[in-house]
Write a protein that binds this DNA or RNA. Structure first.
Lengths: 359, 359
DNA sequence: CTGAAAGCGCTTACAG
DNA sequence: CTGAAAGCGCTTACAG
């Protein structure tokens, strides 16, 4: 309980440093001295070595000394000896940009923690120099591996230095087959699930408002739509596929074209589009889901859960992406080099589609 | 350029490990040997020591050796010697829960990086044990200090172990005055700014829909409303203050009561409420801002920027909170123990308030 | 069952 | 201008 305060006699002096105590943190050696054993013995009891046979009495003394001194092992020294740290690096090209990028971090952090690893993060905002520095930093801290992630699903190049570490691409993939382990959302399955929500509700004539921006999501979500129709024995009609910019304005602006189509249901590329469409539909005196059923994609919580009516959609599994990335890195999950692992986008049904409207 | 591949002769074997190369990473000693100097010299040139006078020719040889071997300093060893690492810890009680919690991380990360620090994050989801473990981990990695943050502005207790480090509370504060450095959003100023947007537009009778949930934000945002009215010489009328649950449903549900008030403008506790109110107002055939002007609070991007009309609001400065926390921790910004530092909530004007409606 | 010693990869006085 | 040596705090064979 020895805690050397700076100004023991001067209680009135403002405590400038909130730091508790000693200039020099307590070391293994000090614990050993207090317990009257060697540092080796202390190390052994701390690390609970199986085959180390330590007398209970000795172990006891050591444990007490540790508690009494408030000893904390120096992880740096530990790592120096072992050669590899308990860090996993996560480089992201934008936590800023999107509300759910944070979920990748969250999933990675939880999973890493579960296996005794801490997350070292760096946000590069897409800046190549920053990225290089970030990777260098992680390499210097001898991370166990690096998760290289993007805020939206896309192909990516692989920085040279990244190859100096074990790494997994998260939410992105290398266009060069076999070049890297990667985990991405299963856009096609998601699109299929979204369409099926509508199909199950009895709709046969379903429009799809796709994005105008090229991306794996654009192709995948369309493919899923086609797959679902095919499964249901409904011929694909290209006229039912519209395109708009993937935000509220885009969805709103697509309203008129959509109404020309004479469909009873529409699947939107994302929730934001659906949000805009809600406004457009409402302005036309149409109600959801009675007059027209709507499903989105992304499950962007703030929007989807609170639109009126709450939006049925499909969830982009960011949390799972981060977690799976960690498991693949640690060799806990299979991680083929040939192709990216796909994570399911589960359907989230709410009230924008009637339970059964034999439209 | 010596890179010892695992199976040099067996090109057909699948490359299981994407890791480039050597089992043993190259060390300072190897660089020294290749350059024909001592390790001390190499260390000196790497760290660009001012007073170290090294012959240009020697420096040159060392630099080449480093490049040739692809040497990366071992940060662990470095830290061991210096005693304190280049880490700043960030413990958060929920990255998950809210879309903007990620901004605290983002701001902290950017600022930390700017000063040569890396961010070590841990998400505790409010779990005390996890929290203790997270702090212990950070302490063991000898972090320079810890940012203890909450996903919404609130009073907080301070875990004992946190006091073993330098720390700053971010988005939260200790109810015990003088107990800790802290940085929080300036709710009162924000509420004042929100109200002033309306005042400047000519409104005199302004309702405030506050939250039902007790929080510093509840008191502060109300105080700001009162302050703004007082500055404008308008007596505060308690009847104009409604309360509702702080989400879309709450805002929607408050519509009728609001309409009883006969106001020309309304300031909502947050953007989500405003979003619900938009729907309620629209259902009553009212248009924004012509019939009634609306301002929100939070500047929750996905919502505020894309409602129709786009919502005027006040920004919760999460990014700045994270950045300021780092600066306070590093002693770059003043950080009084007596009271929390307040960060301004800047107004973000969009189209839900007319430029000039002499209502 | 426990201790003495070497070593992980660096940096920092101290000589020269 | 540069090298030899000690030491940061730990762990790991190796003795005993």
């Amino acid at each position: 309980m020895i805690s050397q305060e700076k100004n023991p006699g001067n209680a009135a002096a403002p405590v400038v440093h909130a730091r508790a105590g000693r200039a020099h943190p307590v070391t293994l050696r000090e614990v050993a001295e207090l317990a009257g054993v060697s540092t080796a013995t202390v190390s052994l009891v701390i690390n609970k070595k199986k085959n180390a046979r330590i007398a209970d009495e000795t172990r006891q003394r050591v444990t007490e000394a540790i508690a009494q001194l408030g000893y904390r092992p120096n992880a740096m020294a530990k790592t120096l000896v072992s050669g590899t740290s308990k860090f996993i690096g996560l480089v992201a090209d934008g936590v800023a940009t999107t509300p759910f990028a944070g979920q990748i971090i969250h999933g990675a952090q939880d999973e890493a923690w579960k296996h005794g690893y801490a997350l070292l993060i760096a946000n590069t905002e897409g800046n190549q120099d920053l990225e290089k520095d970030a990777i260098a930093m992680m390499l210097e801290y001898k991370v166990r591996g690096i998760l290289y992630s993007t805020w939206f699903h896309r192909p990516t190049g692989i920085p040279d230095t990244l190859r100096e570490a074990d790494f997994v691409l998260v939410n992105c993939f290398s266009p060069d087959a076999g070049a890297a382990r990667a985990v991405v959302p299963d856009e096609a399955q998601g699109g299929q699930s979204a369409t099926q929500i509508l199909l199950r509700s009895g709709h046969r004539r379903i429009a799809f408002i796709n994005t105008t921006t090229p991306a794996p999501a654009k192709d995948g979500r369309l493919q899923g739509y086609k797959d679902a129709l095919e499964d249901a024995g409904i011929p694909f009609d290209p006229d039912l596929v519209l395109e708009a910019y993937p935000d509220q304005e885009g969805g709103y602006g697509a309203t008129d074209d959509l109404l020309q189509l004479g469909v009873s249901a529409v699947y939107c590329y994302n929730d934001r589009m659906a949000m805009g469409l809600y406004d457009g539909l409402r302005e036309n005196g149409l109600s959801i889901p009675e007059d027209i059923a709507v499903v989105g994609f992304d499950n962007q919580e703030v929007i989807a859960a609170h639109l009126r009516p709450p939006l049925s959609t499909v969830s982009l599994p960011h949390y799972e992406l981060g977690a799976a990335g960690v498991r693949m890195l640690l060799g806990l999950d299979a991680a083929p080099l040939e192709s990216a692992v796909k994570i399911a986008c589960p359907a989230v049904e709410r009230d924008s589609v009637a339970a059964h409207s034999p439209a």
